[in-house]
Structures are given as C-alpha cells and as structure tokens.
Amino acid sequence: MFEARLLQGSILKKALEGIRELITSGNWECSSAGISMQGMDPSHVALTVLMLQNDLFDQFRCDRNVTLGLNHATFSKILKCAANDDIITLKAEDQPDECNLLFQSANDDKTSDFIIKLTDIDQETLGIPDTEYAATVKVPSVEFQRICRDLSQFGDTIIISVKKGCVEFSGTGEIGSAKIALKESGNVDDDEKVSVEMDKDTPCSLSFASRYLNYFTKATSLSDTVTLQLCPEHPLVVSYDIGDNGSLKYYLAPKIEE
C-alpha cells in the first residue's frame, strides 16, 4: 500500500509543468524514502530527475516499493483540476495498475477523486556519477528564465561562461549577438543574489542548446533561485530545489567541437 499526502499540492502541479514537455511518460518510483522519477527526452540530449523526499509530505506510507508508470500529459490534465492550494493525496495498491489522486480544497468543502490508469514503461535508468564541478552558480530563477528567453532570440546556442565572481551568457546568430553578464552580488542575504563559486580559478565555458534551457525554465515557479553547475566536457546541471526536501534537476549534454 502506498499513500502520500502533500499539503502544498501546487508543488506537484508545478513539477509536472517542468517535466511534461521533456518526458512524455515516466516511472515514478515510490519507496519508503520518497518518490523519484528520472527520464530523458526522445533525443537523449537532456536528463530530468525529480526527487520528492518523504518528509516533503505530511503523511507518507510505502509498505513495499511501488512503480507508477504515468503518462505525463494525462497526469498533467488531472492535476490541472486541482486548485493551487488544494491538498493532494496519491494512493496505490501494491503492484498497481491504477493510481488514485485525491484533491481536497483548502476549506475542505470540495473533494475531487481521480483514478489514473498506469502504463508499463520499460525505461532505462541512468547512473549519475559524482562530479567535481568547476563552477557552481546561483542566480534568481526568474532572472535565468529571462536570460534564456532573451538570448534564444539570437540563435539556437547559448554559451555559459564562468570566471571569478562573474557568469556570462551569450548568444550569436544571423541577426547579431548578445552577451549578458551577472556579477556576484555583494548583499548575500536576499534571494536576488547571484553567487559564483569556482573550484579552482580556471574559467570554464560551455555551449548548450537554448531550446532545452527554455524547457528547463518551465520549472521556475518551484524555487526563487536556480543552481547551475558546470564542468568542462560534462553535462550542465540546472537544479530547482523543492523546499528543503526535494528537487527537480536537469542535466543537459553540451554542444562540442566536431
């Protein structure tokens, strides 16, 4: 028996918005530790990893591991029936072929009860190696969303360059080129801060497809800040924390010199 109750139902709604355009369906693995889902887009350029730890839920029970094979378009349609301040409960039997979704309105005068049919998805899971990142950058998530949108007007590639105390985003194309530089902000307390941590002082610069970066920023509403981790000849990691007990992470393979 699996049952998980999420007081902040909007978390699930927002997470689906950040997933459904990249991964059409996925196995949501439920265990006593929480719920995790991992999947790649059809062209295997980006890997999306969702982690919802058990203490994100105010009630969580998972007697035996349960796999929920979900079609994300369907899941998203059902979640659209939930109000942002609804409590959402997920329930499934052991070896389930369906999942029960319960939405309770904040003032408890409306409950919606949905059954979603599960599908068998044989999806390979990738092992994510520990990596020493050359640079870890934190920027306001709305700022990152705006930069990706603005630069993708210039071309299909965005170059992210990090050097001491500064991160630069640039794009070039037929119409011209653009470069946006963010300096590490002094006032480290507020959310508007930009922080740039370098492993060594060697600057690093990688090229990425702007289309995918714009897919990732669909998750912007999950967190005020987004963390970018870069390492030469490695995938970029774009992470949105979900409170203190979850995250939606994207790994994007770089464009490399032929």
């Binding site: 980006a46 990738l126 790994y251």
Partner: peptide, 14 residues
C-alpha cells in the same frame, strides 16, 4: 562546427 552530444555518452545505464 559544434555538434550536440548525448546524455548517454556521459552517464551509463545503471
């Protein structure tokens, strides 16, 4: 010229 690499060339199947 830059080519798009694939995630599967960085992370192996677990």
């Amino acid at each position: 010229k830059q080519v798009q690499s694939k995630m599967t060339s960085f992370f192996g199947v677990a």
